[in-house]
Amino acid sequence: MTPERAHLYGTTAVAAAVATLGAGVGAAAGGPGIALAVAAITGGGALIGGFLARGRALAAAETAQGAAARSAYIEGRSDSLLATISQYEAAVFPASPDGVTPEERAVRRAHAYKVASDEALPHPIREAAAAALEALDDGDVHRSQHTITTLFYAVRKQTAGR
């Protein structure tokens, strides 16, 4: 459902509810003629008010959609960064001695650095990624595991805060 359609449905529902309430009050106050007049005035007023507020409502919806899209983009890039650094870790510390060629390791390293340098990523995530990449470049198993865990928690904190 588009924001325009949602606003139209909401405005129509509010106008119908206000007109019904106005008709009830009008009927209690003076009979069917008064009920019809009060229903038309209150319902029409609600419709006019809804359409006058349409621009602000749609702007707010657009802003919310943009924020959601940016947040989803950052979450996806953060997950991609974790996967890329994990692939680089597997190249630095292969399961078997001949499991990864030096060329493949260089490609994974270059790709990890490229993904980690994305300006859209929040600073804490880029900082944790830089520490993980430095530890992997040094070949320090324990520090690499610690920094990758820190990166994981930085990504988790970023995505859990939404």
Rank of each mutant, 00 (worst) to 15 (best):
K157C: 05
Y73T: 13
D138K: 11
D138H: 05
L151A: 03
T20N: 00
R54S: 07
G50H: 01
A23G: 15
A72K: 15
P122Q: 04
R5D: 13
G99C: 06
A95D: 14
Y88W: 07
T11E: 07
V155D: 04
E75W: 05
G43L: 02
Y113N: 06
L58H: 03
Q87L: 07
A154Y: 08
S144I: 05
P94W: 06
A15V: 06
A116K: 04
G45W: 07
A131V: 02
S117W: 03
F93W: 05
H111L: 06
H7F: 06
E103R: 10
G33D: 11
H146G: 09
P94M: 04
Q145K: 12
R70Q: 14
G43F: 04
I34A: 01
R70Y: 10
E104A: 15
G49V: 02
T20E: 00
L58C: 02
A46C: 05
H142T: 13
G50P: 00
I85F: 01
R162S: 13
L47T: 05
G22V: 03
A37F: 03
G99I: 06
P122K: 08
R105E: 11
A16G: 14
A57F: 03
D140E: 08
L81F: 00
A90Q: 06
K157Y: 11
T101N: 12
D137T: 09
A53R: 09
E103Y: 14
L47C: 06
